[in-house]
Design a protein around this nucleic acid. Structure first.
Lengths: 281, 281
DNA sequence: CGCGGAGTTGAACGCATTCAAGTCTTGTGG
DNA sequence: CCACAAGACTTGAATGCGTTCAACTCCGCG
């Protein structure tokens, strides 16, 4: 069973603002094309550069075509907590359409390509395509559901489970967009970023990664997650994907795997990487 | 400077669905009245009873008139993590209007009065009052901002700061609705609920409450938070209220207090309670 | 060649959990 | 009216998960 989305399925991101690709269960091809026609110029952003500054009024929303970004808030000592992970196909700050500014910072975690969608263009949609306009509301609700899950993850799971859960989320969300298979996914962020996402220190994140590696669950190397045992990853993470509101065929595929049926075989790349890894340690 | 909202200002909750009272910066009186005219019958719910069950399709949204409720998700061992606190004036599950069901459970934490707002009624608003309809979207975004802050709180603050931060949020949100002054607020939940909100054990929550009490910051007793030193509470919590998108006059009032100007004097009740407490220990 | 960032590992410390035993209050039934 | 059970709260002591501090390797880059 091939991953959904277009046949290529493994490129780095999206060519343009494509809501049908990002939310196939939500936007029709023609609805997505209408939004695409409204997009502004694309721009490239370097890692560690801010995409959105908290408190600053904006007149356009950004959309992530390629690369990865993170929402975050820092405490008074400057220590950051990541609040959400943005993957290709996500709106970066759609809520600013109604709120006018963001309450948190958003930073590129990897080289990113973004494009703009002016608030004025969204405004026109309200009259011209009310159903489509409603679906943009729905997108903000889907993002909120994901962000809510982060509270659960960091509040009730142990360190290793938090890492596993974040990997599971990154994999499944990208898989649902046809951006990867089920053997692994891009995640070009540092161990420090990972630690800031999971509410722990980089040192501890490193140790938990070592445990997951030794238990043959997954490895995090060269900006990718390679999954050796997806059912095991889900188990370690106590992972539930209900909060992602996935299309039924994706949910069912994941359920099969969690039950231990039709486990995907680790591919060459992972094997080689594991071997390299073991040799070096 | 008196608290905003109606003059009484200190009753237990709202008489009916009143969006002007809940979001004075957002809904005009007449907009709020229009929504009120659409509300269904009110109902009373006992503590510990579920208001919303995850995954079950619903055809109406609920609105919390009085009492307190909590969003939560449980792990595989049944341990709960609260994901949000609902106070009088909050929509309980407005996102179900677009998503059809909730991804998390919602439970009454105290005796609650709720009323319904049928999805069909919201649907009509899209045509009849598009600006109002947009503001409902905005309400879901405000809720999302609060829930996002919970990730920060539990991820980057120490135990004591988490408790203080939650108290600060409960106080400020109720104050902004004229449901309390700045000396304290209702919070009729158990220490176990508090612990589940802050991602810690009940035992530890209890100890942190003891520290806050001994340091003369606040006390949590008989279902209320009594604040003896609001600036101190904000400091302990590293509290920032930007994420609440408050009306300017409220923000400015809070900023004054945080700067140490015009600190509100603790009132008789708190003094008495503190005395009682000390006597008993 | 030297520098800095990312990753890795060890050891000591400490915050929070866990287990346990209490108190106090409330509600229920004899 | 009292006995009793159940739940919320409190406190102590032992344990352990995660942090902190520190040293070191690896690698890309000027």
């Amino acid at each position: 069973m091939p991953p959904p989305g277009n046949a290529a399925g493994q490129e780095r991101g999206l060519q343009g603002l494509d809501l049908h690709r990002a939310y196939p269960q939500l936007f029709t091809r023609s609805e997505a094309d209408l939004v695409t026609s409204l997009q502004g110029a694309a721009a490239t952003v370097r890692p560690r550069h801010k995409l959105v500054q908290a408190g600053v009024p904006v007149t356009a929303c950004s959309y992530l075509l390629e690369g990865f970004a993170g929402r975050y808030r820092a405490d008074h000592q400057g220590r950051r907590q990541l609040l959400g992970l943005l993957i290709p196909g996500d709106f970066i700050d759609l809520p600013t359409w109604r709120l006018g500014h963001s309450d948190h910072e958003i930073v590129a975690l990897a080289p990113a390509r973004v494009c703009a969608l002016p608030h004025a263009a969204i405004s026109d949609l309200r009259q011209d395509a009310p159903d489509l306009y409603d679906k943009l509301w729905q997108v903000t609700l889907l993002d909120a559901a994901i962000e809510r899950y982060w509270t659960f993850r960091n509040g009730r799971l142990t360190g290793r489970a938090r890492i596993a859960s974040l990997f599971a989320e990154a994999l499944v969300r990208q898989y649902a967009r046809g951006l990867c298979g089920l053997n692994g996914c891009p995640l070009p962020i540092s161990q420090t970023d990972l630690a800031e996402a999971c509410g722990m220190t980089p040192v501890h994140a490193n140790r938990m990664l070592g445990e997951l590696r030794q238990e043959q669950v997954c490895l995090f190397l060269d900006g990718r997650v390679e999954v050796m045992d997806l059912a095991g990853l889900f188990r370690q993470a106590q992972f539930d994907w209900d909060y992602l509101y996935l299309p039924p065929e994706i949910s069912e595929r994941l359920a099969e795997i969690a039950r231990g049926e039709a486990a995907p075989v680790p591919q060459g790349w992972a094997r080689q990487a594991a071997a390299r890894r073991v040799r070096r340690l």
